[in-house]
Computed example of a mutant assay.
Amino acid sequence: MKILVVSDTHGHDENLEQAVYREAPFDMLIHCGDVEGREIFVEALAECPCCIVSGNNDFFSDLSREEEIDIAGKKFLVTHGHYYGVSLDILGVVDEARSRNCDGVFFGHTHKPVFENVDGILAVNPGSLSYPRQAGRRPSYAVLETTDEGQITGEIRYL
């Protein structure tokens, strides 16, 4: 199974389209918020099951604040992250995932990519495809792959 993880597209679709076309085919798309009213477009573009949560800029959205999903028999929290202080430190969102017995967490908000194991919890922030803030400011996203044995590997990729 191949999973594309994106965040913070802020209604600007050009780089999202480029990432989708580059990584297709994939089995699931996860958007960690700040889609700004483009969720129907994202679902149509992906042509696969999508998990899209609301971010701090998704005003008047009917999207869920967060979701728990299963990937290869492992439980993941999907959230934007702003309720957990991710701009200062990712430990709050990691602790929330742990308190829910999750194996990992997908989040956004900072526009800076993260892919690390924090005390047994996989923490993934794909960064931003529209307004990257990390050194070099390259648009980024994450790709995860699962094996039949339930192993999950992945990485941050850049446009």
Rank of each mutant, 00 (worst) to 15 (best):
F106E: 02
L91N: 12
G81N: 04
K112P: 01
L45M: 03
A135D: 15
C50R: 12
L63C: 08
E39C: 15
A44E: 14
F76C: 01
L91W: 07
S87W: 14
R133W: 04
G33V: 04
H80L: 11
R138G: 09
D103N: 12
I52G: 11
V118F: 06
C48I: 07
F107M: 02
S140H: 00
H80A: 08
V124S: 08
T153L: 06
A72I: 13
V5I: 14
K75Y: 09
V20Q: 01
V124N: 05
C48R: 04
T79H: 03
E14C: 05
E68F: 15
F60T: 12
M28H: 08
I69T: 07
D89K: 01
N101F: 04
S140L: 04
D13W: 14
L159F: 12
F59D: 11
S140T: 08
V20A: 08
P25G: 03
G150R: 14
P25H: 02
D62R: 15
G136D: 03
M1D: 15
V20F: 02
M1G: 14
L16H: 00
A19N: 02
Q151D: 09
R65Y: 05
I71E: 13
Y21M: 04
D34K: 01
V94A: 00
V124L: 01
R157G: 01
A44F: 09
Y141H: 07
Q18E: 12
E68A: 10
H109K: 06
L45D: 00
D34M: 11
R157T: 06
K2T: 08
D8P: 05
G154L: 08
T146A: 13
D89C: 04
S140E: 01
A46Q: 11
Q18P: 01
A97R: 06
R138F: 13
E67W: 03
D148G: 13
S87R: 15
S54K: 07
I156Y: 07
T146F: 08
R22S: 09
Q18C: 12
G37H: 11
P25D: 00
L77I: 08
G104W: 00
C51M: 13
E68G: 11
G33T: 04
A24Q: 11
H31F: 12
T9I: 12
E155L: 12
I71S: 03
A135M: 11
C50V: 15
D89F: 03
G11C: 05
L4V: 09
P49T: 14
S61R: 03
N56C: 11
P126E: 02
Y84A: 03
T153R: 08
L77G: 00
R22K: 10
T110Y: 00
C51R: 07
I156P: 06
E14R: 13
R38C: 15
P49Q: 14
C32M: 15
T9D: 10
V143G: 01
E39I: 07
E67V: 05
G120S: 09
D70W: 15
D89Q: 05
E17I: 15
